[in-house]
Design a protein around this nucleic acid. Structure first.
Lengths: 143, 143
DNA sequence: TTGACATTGAAAATGAATATCATTATCATT
DNA sequence: AATGATAATGATATTCATTTTCAATGTCAA
């Protein structure tokens, strides 16, 4: 989904929930939708304040929580104590394969793996909403 | 590796680093080595204090950091704000399925998924050393 | 036994995330 | 356009997990 589509999706989520619009939230969401991936709240706040320095800290948190609840952002913990928010890529879900030497990161999708995950979840009676799959190793240049 | 082996490994790690032994640390580590999986610091502290009520929580934090640095524990973030420590399993790798409401965590292995990961890695010319797969959703009780 | 220094426990400090609250903005209804 | 119910905001306080500080104690090589 592109940024415009996300803006639409957010609008319909807001109206579905009986919420109201605000210029701050629209601006924060739009700024986030234009990022690539894995932005921390601090980074997002910096970008937002470059254009609108009056926007409060808490409003950014609230907006990101709203986007996360609405399925327009994914909150991720990479272990450094800060939550990072991932903007949904245009072409659906992807996973990561990471070189532990040169930090090269490739994205991939594998529908077969997704299907097996679904099957595994059923085995445990879980309803899966999202998942994280990361492969760590050496890329061709570093092997 | 069994608990005794881990105790040995810890001892050699401590001497390699020029640290000293202490009864508190030995006891905390031993308690942890006897756990199964994914214990939070609070849970570990409770178990430790059942036998030795004078042990401070900072010492438990320090000990778990030491075990993590020494490769005898794995710190994991499952998104509920609490770090959980995983005792190294005797029988190799497993993945996780996590309830985002009640934080219930189940382990699973799926050789088919592993094989597909291997195939995916080859497609990118990567040599995979390890991976992380986590499924997030609602368990049967929270659905 | 001694002395350097690692370890401990209690408490204070830190830092990310959330809650509070007075004020302002939104929007369906008049 | 005015009203009123209430959502949203921004500043600040609070919460909660984790880390740091510090004085006292324990460890261990010399």
């Amino acid at each position: 989904m592109n940024a415009a589509g996300k803006t639409e999706a957010l609008k319909s989520y807001i109206s579905k929930k009986g919420l109201r619009s605000s210029t701050q939230r629209d601006f924060i969401a739009d700024t986030f939708f234009r990022t690539n991936t894995h932005i921390s709240l601090e980074e997002l706040l910096n970008r937002v304040r470059k254009k609108n320095s009056a926007i409060g800290y808490a409003t950014v948190y609230r907006t990101m929580k709203l986007l996360t609840d609405g399925g327009l952002a994914v909150a991720r913990q990479f272990g450094d104590g800060q939550t990072r928010y991932e903007n949904l890529p245009a072409e659906g879900h992807h996973d990561h394969i990471i070189c532990i030497k040169c930090s090269r990161i490739e994205e991939f999708t594998n529908p077969e793996i997704e299907a097996l995950q679904e099957k595994t979840a059923k085995r445990f009676g879980f309803k899966v909403l999202n998942h994280k799959l990361e492969l760590y190793g050496y890329c061709s240049a570093c092997a």
